[in-house]
């Protein structure tokens, strides 16, 4: 029993160490029409030279871009509709990132400008605002993404507890079968 506990402790120590994982992921930020981002394995592996496709909602290919050695890429989205970025490494690793329709927030920005006298400068204001806000929240989004990528100890503990519970249930069922009188 002590050996089993030691083994479990080892598992926990492994899991608690800086988490690394096995999942391909795309992270991107869009400022206006421009999309910049990176493709990577959660836990730090880079994917140099990965090919990414920009597809429309029906899965039609709109554009293709190749990531650089650090897995970074940049492209311009085509048209305002909802699009999706897909990376298929061809070996069973696939990542997708949905890009919601551009300008979804534009009406809000536009309505803010309604009260003021419309001028040439005001027409550009929503776009400038959007760019400024996007620049400001980018670090926040990156941080949020990093946080999401972290494997949390409670997930690992939850999984292990699930297995222990299942083992207990199985033992209970088997014990019941043993005690039941033979038919």
């Amino acid at each position: 029993m002590a050996r089993l506990l030691a083994l479990l402790a080892l598992c926990l120590a492994l899991g608690a160490a800086p988490a690394s994982a096995h999942k391909l992921k795309i992270f991107a930020t869009a400022v206006g029409e421009r999309i910049e981002g990176k493709i990577y394995f959660v836990g730090g592996g880079v994917v140099p030279g990965a090919k990414l496709q920009l597809q429309d909602a029906k899965g039609q290919k709109l554009a293709e871009v190749t990531a650089d050695q650090a897995g970074r890429f940049a492209l311009t989205r085509s048209g305002p509709g909802a699009q999706v970025l897909v990376a298929d490494l061809g070996d069973g690793h696939v990542a997708r990132l949905a890009l919601p329709a551009a300008g979804a927030a534009a009406p809000v920005a536009g309505s803010a400008a309604v009260g003021t006298a419309p001028g040439a400068a005001d027409a550009q204001l929503p776009a400038l605002l959007e760019q400024a806000v996007a620049r400001q929240i980018e670090p926040l989004r990156a941080q949020l993404n990093d946080y999401e990528d972290q494997l949390r100890l409670r997930d690992i503990l939850g999984g292990l507890a699930f297995i222990i519970g299942l083992a207990g249930t199985a033992a209970w069922v088997k014990a019941g079968q043993r005690r039941a009188p033979p038919p």
Binding site: L7, C11, S20, H22, F41, G159, L160
Partner: peptide
């Protein structure tokens, strides 16, 4: 069975980069 299931569950977190994949 439960202990090895737990080990297998956690072992997938140890990732070894091999070339362009892992």
């Amino acid at each position: 069975t439960a202990v090895l299931a737990a080990v297998f569950f956690v072992a997938s977190l140890v990732h070894i980069p091999v070339g362009p994949t892992s």
